[in-house]
Design a protein around this nucleic acid. Structure first.
Lengths: 352, 352
DNA sequence: TTGAAAGCGCTAACAT
DNA sequence: ATGTTAGCGCTTTCAA
């Protein structure tokens, strides 16, 4: 690999002149000099050594991206949007890490970022406990978190970008109510994340609003692991069996997310229940896969591309200007009506 | 951030002594000196600056990982296994890039890796044309490719890790044959990748073997884009409509991959065809989602975790020892029998 | 057993 | 308009 000195020699200029053209400081440069430098650069196929630039400037065009598991299609979708936006719109590469929702893994990732002088990091769907985040921020990281709300009241050093989870669950529940369901369930996996808590509140709010608070219940199952891809669907299957066996089961359920809904769909079928004839389901996420299930899943779509763009803009923007204060960004979801919701059957209504 | 000099000062030793302990050269070091250094390191919470190490040594514990689209659940799965293995077993972080199967994006990614002095790169399912790979290798990259076979005959500078695609398609087809199917289809999207060509060969080989060569057909649809996540399923849906309308349609089909099979499943249902009563399907990949479809999809499972481990070992191993020659690694897939395959119905047999 | 010092490739303040 | 140079934080050779 050729260095800046090689280029300088070939163009018969000093290294600083080369550095100047590299960094766009060409206003008062001789046109001929500039041409010679460009010519030398392409002749040598020269690329600046990022490590050297970085050592000098303390910056590097990279971002960290932490997900519970990239095998989860929802996180894969978000990650794709984030990486594409970081790369195409801001010229940043992204370092990916799977955390399996493990605090030590998160901490380890932050430490490595700091060691690599990568100053921006995006964290997807972490657990409620945020203390190791704050300590990472103190070490200099610019952090934006997805799918977690700011802890109310506490001034935070982190941007929070999320969908209005309360509203998402409320819409899903209201959709069921609109179809005449009077006995409702919110199906969730037992790990507590902030977004789950909010969805539960939205669920109950919609039930309350419809005067159905007494017949609205949380149904939760414990996952072996907490990072939710195949496991999330497993929980759905198990829960479906439990629900099917319950003679007082709800006529309509909202699933924590689409993956859980997929498991529910499979589990109900196995238990001999038809969706939506025997029970209605609405998911949350709007994964492309939700259009393919049998029946196609009614779900709440999250505006993922827009959220991803905001996330990336925030990290990059705040790295460039430390004066910008962290803030909160809430996006509104929307209902996709498909075929997993119908009016409750007479027998179902009687049972409930 | 404290530097090595701060540590040295605090421990009252020279920087080279600190560097020695950092790099494990402690054999003939005074026990007391060593202790002082350790103590200073933890007192200052010191972490070596990777950029500086890298500038000096020319190495950095990172890998590049290129996928067509991380939103594709199969690539997400592979990526998770690769990242986890790179991190836990070898202490390397991974830089992720989506290529959308675009040559310029691939080339751009390679250039950035070189600029960052990242010397190892893993490429998933790229297109057939490999020339820009060879040129990246000449620039110093250690490359391992997944899901592409080496170009026969040509000595390559790239490791190739893949599943035996011929065998995968052969097994899938033989499974259909074993269930009595005499009219076979291989459903694929039209973009040509190496793995697709091999699967077709395996399909025909199994048909031939069963004396069914004349009634074995390729059914392909063109995708708008080539990186295959939601699009792949779309193609499946369209193709299903076309197949359903065809009075001479096969009684059993092998799908290029599970995602395509999901689209097929949805499309057949929409067209009023039942699986497996009216038509049997077998997928290829073994995604966890394939267990959740209605009916559950019979498919060919790829040994993803093992392949991922091999991939990572190869990059890291060859970076450490340039004398190691690139080679080819072929893994054997296995059949998962579920419910999307049954004996062809009488009417279906007559039709064909 | 420990230390001094050169140098990795670049940026930017300063000099000319 | 262009050049000189110190120094970013580390590794490693060589000397003591």
């Amino acid at each position: 690999m050729s260095t800046i000195a090689d280029v300088a020699a070939r163009a018969s200029v000093s290294v600083s002149t080369v550095s100047n053209v590299l960094n766009g400081r060409v206003e008062r440069m001789g046109a001929e000099t500039l041409a010679r430098v460009h010519q030398a650069i392409s002749a040598l196929d020269y690329r600046p050594n990022r490590a050297a630039q970085q050592l000098k400037t303390g910056r590097t065009p990279m971002l960290g991206l932490l997900v519970p598991s990239i095998a989860n299609p929802m996180y894969g979708y978000i990650a794709r949007e984030i990486e594409t936006s970081a790369q195409e719109r801001h010229g940043h590469r992204v370092v990916l890490g799977n955390t399996y929702r493990n605090k030590d893994k998160e901490t380890g990732f932050f430490e490595d970022l700091v060691a690599h002088q990568i100053r921006g990091v995006i964290v997807i769907s972490s657990l409620v406990d945020e203390r190791h985040f704050e300590s990472a921020v103190r070490r200099g990281l610019v952090m934006v978190s997805y799918d977690r709300r700011a802890t109310p009241g506490s001034a935070t050093a982190i941007d929070h970008v999320s969908v209005d989870n309360f509203e998402a669950a409320r819409m899903a529940t209201a959709h069921l109510v609109a179809y005449g369901h009077r006995s409702l369930g919110f199906v969730t996996a037992s790990g507590r994340t902030m977004s789950r808590d909010e969805k539960m509140r939205g669920f109950f709010a919609a039930a309350e609003q419809a005067g159905l608070r007494a017949s609205a219940h949380i149904i939760d199952g414990s996952a072996q692991s907490q990072f939710g891809d195949s496991e999330m669907a497993e929980v759905g299957m198990q829960l479906a069996a439990r629900i099917a066996a319950d003679r007082t089961r709800p006529t309509g359920v909202v699933a924590l997310n689409d993956l859980l809904a997929f498991g529910l769909l499979a589990g109900f079928r196995e238990a001999g229940l038809s969706v939506p004839e025997d029970i209605s389901i609405v998911g949350i996420d709007g994964l492309f896969l939700s259009a393919l299930t049998n029946p196609p899943l009614s779900t709440i779509r999250l505006p993922v591309p827009q959220m991803a763009r905001t996330i990336v803009e925030r990290v990059i923007g705040r790295m460039a200007d430390p004066a910008i204060k962290p803030s909160e960004f809430l996006f509104t979801p929307s209902l996709i009506e498909r075929a997993s919701v119908a009016r409750p059957s007479k027998s179902a209504r009687l049972r409930a």
